[in-house]
Design a protein around this nucleic acid. Structure first.
Lengths: 150, 150
DNA sequence: GGCTTAATCTATCAATCTGGTAGAGTAGTA
DNA sequence: TACTACTCTACCAGATTGATAGATTAAGCC
């Protein structure tokens, strides 16, 4: 499961994606709109700024804003930033790779083999899950009949 | 990432799957072979017994053993037992479903939509990742040239 | 220049989870 | 009945999670 911090980050990013190229948005506004504790959100936005996803402007008329196109920000990147590896086992991760000390020959490990497949599938989907993809799907859902109604 | 506890459980289960229908195996033997702290392993095996995956026999000649065919024990089940939901978001889980309180209409949520797809793919793969599948893959790896060598 | 605004930094905190240890108790088997 | 091996209870250190408080710095405006 992703942490609340990551979920808050995603909520904030989607909020800012909807306001893309519309100037800075106040932390307080995002916090109110998305029901995120403001002080907690401040720390999150700061991390997203350090990761070069957001930028900020101080003083009156200031706030945070996206500095990348919404299709260039994926859930894979956000999750890695806050929660670390996407892989379920350290020995199947790429950036965060770590070998299992108990494992003699990693390349003959059946456990690693099956979890590698899971990782590959998850990474592929999460890379395609960009902010613009989320917005696109929201629009699609609005224009569809409610689920279960036929 | 899965917890060490879950990883230990998987290691122990694969060990017992290799000894399927060969009688009880000592906790101490599994602990030694798989480098798992014995006392910690005891708690794990006890949980697997309560989950009706293992059974135990006391006294001399006792130990733990699988009571299901190896193809009937999946990583999905083991992970849910020790680490809870497989879904990345509570609102996309089935058994562990929980709605996001900040969400007005869940069925119009784009975030939920993309994470539902991830969950479905992950669950499908983890259900197919049974103990016998792990053993089958280990055998396949043994009969293959080493990766990177051509 | 001084005031206001708003981001930034530092510190702290309770609660929970994780991984692990110790030891007493209980029950089956030879 | 003695031995073996599982079972239960309790405890613990350290890390992580989610959150709060307050001080500081920088930008814009009159």
């Amino acid at each position: 499961m992703i942490s609340k911090k990551t979920k808050y980050a995603i909520n904030a990013l989607v909020y800012l994606a909807r306001r893309w190229e519309q100037g800075p948005v106040l932390i307080s506004e995002i916090a109110r709109a998305e029901s995120i504790p403001q002080k907690f959100l401040e720390a999150i936005l700061l991390e997203l700024k350090r990761a070069q996803i957001l930028a900020s402007k101080k003083g009156k008329g200031g706030g945070y804003f996206l500095i990348r196109a919404p299709q260039e920000v994926s859930m894979a990147e956000v999750m890695r930033l806050f929660d670390g590896p996407i892989a379920l086992l350290p020995c199947t991760a790429h950036r965060y790779y770590e070998r299992c000390e108990e494992c003699r020959n990693e390349h003959l490990c059946g456990i690693r083999d099956v979890f590698s497949v899971v990782r590959a599938a998850t990474v592929r989907l999460l890379k395609n899950a960009t902010l613009s993809e989320i917005m696109r799907r929201e629009e699609a859902l609005r224009n569809q009949p409610l689920p279960g109604e036929f």
